[in-house]
Design a protein around this nucleic acid. Sequence first.
DNA 1: CATGAATGAGGGTTCATTCAT
DNA 2: AATGAATGAACCCTCATTCAT
Lengths: 211, 211, 211, 211
Amino acid sequence: MKNGAPAVATLPRREREKLRQREELLTAALELFSEKGYHSVSMHQIAQRAEFAVGTVYKFFKNKEDLYKALILAKVAEYHQILKETLDQEKDIPSLLHDYVAAKAAVLVGGAATLRLYFAETRGASFNIKAGLDRDIRKLYDEVVARLASVLDTGVKTKVFRKLDPYQMAMALEGITNAFLFGWLEDPQRHPYEANIPTMIDMFFLGVSLK
Amino acid sequence: MKNGAPAVATLPRREREKLRQREELLTAALELFSEKGYHSVSMHQIAQRAEFAVGTVYKFFKNKEDLYKALILAKVAEYHQILKETLDQEKDIPSLLHDYVAAKAAVLVGGAATLRLYFAETRGASFNIKAGLDRDIRKLYDEVVARLASVLDTGVKTKVFRKLDPYQMAMALEGITNAFLFGWLEDPQRHPYEANIPTMIDMFFLGVSLK
Amino acid sequence: MKNGAPAVATLPRREREKLRQREELLTAALELFSEKGYHSVSMHQIAQRAEFAVGTVYKFFKNKEDLYKALILAKVAEYHQILKETLDQEKDIPSLLHDYVAAKAAVLVGGAATLRLYFAETRGASFNIKAGLDRDIRKLYDEVVARLASVLDTGVKTKVFRKLDPYQMAMALEGITNAFLFGWLEDPQRHPYEANIPTMIDMFFLGVSLK
Amino acid sequence: MKNGAPAVATLPRREREKLRQREELLTAALELFSEKGYHSVSMHQIAQRAEFAVGTVYKFFKNKEDLYKALILAKVAEYHQILKETLDQEKDIPSLLHDYVAAKAAVLVGGAATLRLYFAETRGASFNIKAGLDRDIRKLYDEVVARLASVLDTGVKTKVFRKLDPYQMAMALEGITNAFLFGWLEDPQRHPYEANIPTMIDMFFLGVSLK
DNA sequence: CATGAATGAGGGTTCATTCAT
DNA sequence: AATGAATGAACCCTCATTCAT
């Protein structure tokens, strides 16, 4: 790295091109899977939407399952990474919770497609398209909830919150935010998410606060 | 029931027999769909589990989609019917909410199968297996939430709750209960549902109570 | 089997029909495989030639390989069975050898198709379409050669033949008959097989006779 | 070596280089085809083993079939050339036959790969991968057998052999040698070829000798 | 009327071949 | 000239649906 340019920029043109194509495929796949679900999307359709031939898809992904896993795991990992970082900030608990709920909104800019798939996977509707994917996602999800619980636990110890099970508090917060996210997904006009962040926080906070 | 025997009993034997067979098919289908998901279950499997020939299944249901819709709608309608009736009781608000949350638990005795499918459908993971199914389910769901909101609205008006949007309060309660239900589904040992009903009510109630 | 009818005749009509269809499929497959080889024949072609839909083929055979194995093993087993029985007769050695060589001709009535496939498989050109098939065929083949060798060994012990390795004598006889069979396959007019049986026997017999 | 250098040496360097590359491709292809058979080898594999790009293979051979034909014909032609030359020597008949059988062994040092493919092709197992290849090979083969028959015919005329059809005698000798070759291919330990040359000659010779 | 054999469209995947670089 | 990314026809197989018995 003598010439100091960032790694990404120094990738050979060919490599960058490949990555771009991979992204295009993933984007096409995300849209289609999100619209119709895993089984109702054919590899031909994905290739077509990405403007490739079927064979090309198989240069990037071993098979349909592999493509799906790559898609889901990338999105989920990215999303949970953001959430964990949010919770790792050095802030007072109310700010932390606010940031957390706001960060969940951030994923929405990735579009309803991602969110819809995310719900399908994290809410157990995937019916184990691939054993192992479930587990991987579950693990990431649990990490976030655990991190959230530890924040809430601090709140309990510092007498901010009542003596409730922190994991159950985390579940409650997850439930509230997911419900609002889902409302947004169904009807964004009627259920704006960001505008309701204070409401969510408020309800949750009072629900668990000590006095 | 003055005017004679209950409706079911008055059906000609032939008709009753048919209904029973239909139920057997739906039961078999429910188990299988819940285990493996819509696309991974074949009509032959359903027929086999119900101990019919494939052709017979088509006497009862136009096609696979039709069978699925019938199955889902029946379960969802039954479930929401119970919830609505629960909320229609003449009780004070805390009791009502408790009954509501408890009623959600009642469906669990029907088995995880129903619940899993219920989540798949209400949480948007079905990816519109049949356009229109979504809408039908949505409608039933909205009725329940509306009924719940009206109860909560009464709470606001009677100064039991703070001045929050009743619909949003309903969403929050839905979110909390669903989160716990989902936890139970994933790991019933670790997340017992019934034992946590007071916790849920408690968190929600304090979150929305007027002091 | 009280009613004394032969098993086959008593098979329900349905069963007999199924067997007939299976035979039709095997016949179509034999012709095609023999004409073009395993990899150049598609399941659609086989179904078409037998006047079935593809799906039907899969009612009878798990997959293409299974069909191929069934085809080959049936023919080879039948063929080797005949040869072994021929060699098991209680006759003098010259008669035995004559019958053996003549029996090899008998398979020809099954047609060149069978023979061509037989050569492909026993002469090692199959390149292990399926590991295991090779072994099965090899085993059957070895049994016949061993049986033949034991006959020849008797010839040696009774001083009919010179003191040669019976297994090698068997190989020589196999070689001669196969060469003539192959000649017939290439050009039946120019290389009639049956007419040459005495010649083959003659050459072989004198080659190994004790004076 | 002025202008009189051997043809190969006088080829421009470029041409020689091309020929060498062609050979490398053929060698790689021979190994692979022999190991797995025509249909189970991809052009990519061949290119890879020869350390070329796929495109390059198509500079040398019009298509896969063309490559295969070139490979087979080259080997077969070379092999039959040797056999014919062997039979063209001015020697007594027993020596000639011995040399012939020994020459068949010589090809074995070229490896089982060649032999396996040779059997696949000459024994009709190739199923006409390319119509026309059969004919070309058959022609070469027939020339050798004809040459062998003419030697044997001389034997008949000089009263070395009995009055048998020389062509049929040739077929018998071919059969015997092929059987032993095949035995060697299957299990070189159990069926050494060279050690058995005298046995083969012996059996054949006595089989056809006059007294 | 119930049956289940038969159908064939459609899906995932491979690989011979082409052609822009 | 050499490369190998891209193509898409064709393959094997499954399964929803039909219909003769």
